[in-house]
Amino acid sequence: MVSSAMLFERRPWERRQVGIIRDHSDIQAGLDALVELDPRLAAIVEASGPVPLRLNEPGFSGLASIIVSQMVSRASAEAIWRRITAVGPVTAASYRALDPATIATFGLSRAKAATLLHLSTAISEGHFDLASVGALETAEAIRRMVALPGIGPWTAEVYLMFCCGHADIFPTGDVALQAAVAHAFGLEARPSAKDLATMARDWSPWRSVAARLFWAYYAAKMRRDVTPLA
């Protein structure tokens, strides 16, 4: 077994700018580049099988689905999302206008119900411009999103990855990613978020593809699909 610290001493590669991820060709380009950046990933690509694109439309609906996905189980999240979408189109204005009694039937936790209500109100009343946040530089986009009540770094990172196509994000606080990296590299324990951030620097500017790869690896090895979007 090796420790996570042993994986950090790598010579930095020259980085290049990467555009927005839009289709499967971008995923393949990212995988090819990642194997060049870190040859250890070749075996992980082989073990993982196809790496899904999984892009959703940007906007309130996409962000709301990510918030809902943070349930105890994927089945619970999917059931709640079906109830929400059954009411009608999921927009900030339509959600803000829902009767509280209707929202109560969705099965949301009190915290998530409050987050969605705050978010829909902020967007529909013009206090937050979600439509433009995806065009910002990643760090600034995350900073603005986490200023919203109930929106944490993981939620912001996943939204920017899967709804806006940002190519260089690795959600280091994701437990499944920590477990997948530990398993793939034979670590003694799951790396902390801080240690995983250090490791993931080697995969820049394709960290969003690396995250997809390790989620796919987790699904292949642990037989559980934990990617935030279906």
Rank of each mutant, 00 (worst) to 15 (best):
F8Q: 14
F214H: 00
D195I: 09
A167P: 04
V226D: 02
L55C: 07
P205G: 06
R224V: 01
V35Y: 08
W203F: 06
A86Q: 03
P191S: 03
A179I: 06
E137F: 13
Q70T: 01
G62M: 11
I66W: 02
L130A: 06
A210I: 04
G19M: 11
G62H: 11
A122C: 03
A179W: 01
Y217V: 08
T91K: 14
A111G: 10
A29Y: 14
C163I: 09
D225R: 06
F8I: 15
R143M: 06
M161G: 06
D174I: 04
A33S: 10
R11C: 12
R16A: 14
E57Y: 13
G59W: 14
L41K: 11
G107K: 00
A167S: 09
A220G: 13
A92D: 15
A182C: 06
A211N: 06
E36S: 12
L34S: 08
L63P: 10
A211D: 03
A220L: 14
T91Q: 14
M1T: 05
P12I: 12
A184S: 14
P52Q: 06
D225C: 04
P50Y: 01
F162R: 05
I27V: 12
A179R: 02
L55S: 08
Q28C: 12
D99W: 09
D174S: 01
G59S: 11
I21R: 04
S48Q: 03
A113I: 10
P171M: 00
A179E: 10
G107T: 00
E157F: 07
P50V: 04
R110F: 03
L31M: 05
R110G: 00
S94I: 15
S204D: 05
A176K: 02
L130R: 02
P228T: 13
F214R: 00
A42K: 14
A230G: 12
P205M: 09
G62E: 13
E125L: 06
A200G: 12
A122T: 05
Y95P: 08
V72M: 10
P171T: 00
S25A: 03
A42P: 10
V226P: 00
L130E: 02
R15G: 03
R96C: 12
L196F: 08
S94V: 15
R11Y: 15
A210L: 02
E36F: 06
I20G: 01
I142A: 09
S61V: 11
S76C: 03
L34G: 07
S204Y: 07
M199K: 07
R82H: 07
P149A: 06
A230H: 13
A42D: 14
R16W: 11
A92Y: 13
V226I: 04
Y218P: 10
E137C: 11
R96W: 11
G107Q: 01
R96Y: 13
R143N: 09
F170T: 01
I103W: 12
S61W: 07
P12R: 14
V146C: 14
S76E: 11
S3D: 15
M6C: 12
A211P: 01
R11N: 15
R40C: 09
A135W: 11
W203N: 02
P50Q: 03
I20C: 11
G186Q: 13
P12Y: 13
D202Q: 14
P100T: 13
L37P: 08
T105F: 00
A135M: 10
S3R: 15
V146H: 14
G88D: 08
V72I: 11
R11Q: 15
S132H: 07
E36W: 07
V158C: 03
